[in-house]
């Protein structure tokens, strides 16, 4: 399936029969700085058909590293983050899983994506064989404080992946407002 462009999608389970457990890797590079640096935090949001977070417990990030039923779990850091998804365990009420990276809103100079380069999201098999990858195009990011990298979504009986690469200027609060969860 190879590399995607923003907005493109790829069939995962339809083209890989029997695919159940996948690994989603997120990565980027930060330009080093001596002062306070942006600290990027990956977040997986399990959404209902209306695009809203199913519940606050269905937000998976470094301090809540698994969803209640265990279908989405943070794994390792070979990429900046690796997230295990067991598609067979995803509750029927979850229509999509969106992968977001936000700048931690530390009051001491939280920063933006301006010093971030080479962001990507990739989907691989459980054996880490890459199925699809999206290298987010470089563009001015001086006012970007959160970004949707991509999403897994149901399509009839199958799962697909969509490349997004859409930035927020309103940070985690904007993300929370769109996906209707509490922060």
């Amino acid at each position: 399936m190879g590399n995607l462009v923003a907005g493109a999608n790829a069939a995962l389970t339809a083209e890989n029969p029997g695919l159940s457990k996948i690994l989603v890797g997120l990565g980027w590079q930060s330009i080093p700085s001596r002062g306070p640096q942006s600290e990027l935090v990956p977040l997986a949001i399990m959404c209902d058909a209306g695009g809203r977070a199913v519940s606050n417990d269905h937000l998976v990030f470094f301090n809540q590293i698994a969803s209640p039923e265990g279908s989405v779990a943070f794994a390792g850091t070979e990429d900046q983050e690796q997230i295990d998804v067991d598609l067979s365990l995803v509750p029927a009420g979850v229509a999509k899983i969106t992968f977001i990276v936000y700048v931690d809103p530390d009051l001491r100079g939280p920063g933006t994506f301006s010093a971030i380069r080479n962001q990507y999201i990739r989907v691989a098999t459980a054996q880490n064989q890459e199925l699809v990858r999206f290298d987010i195009p470089q563009s001015p990011q001086d006012n970007i404080t959160a970004m949707m990298f991509g999403e897994l979504y149901r399509h009839r009986e199958d799962w697909k992946f969509r490349a997004l690469g859409q930035g927020y200027t309103t940070g985690l609060r904007g993300v929370a407002a769109d996906f209707r969860f509490d922060v």
Partner: peptide, 25 residues
């Protein structure tokens, strides 16, 4: 607690150490 399929036993499989969430909370 909900159960998951038995995890793969191969150490080469990244999922080898996966646990159901009931054990992680």
């Amino acid at each position: 607690a909900p159960t998951s399929p038995a995890p793969a036993t191969s150490a080469a499989t990244p999922w080898a150490g996966a646990r159901p969430a009931a054990e992680t909370r």
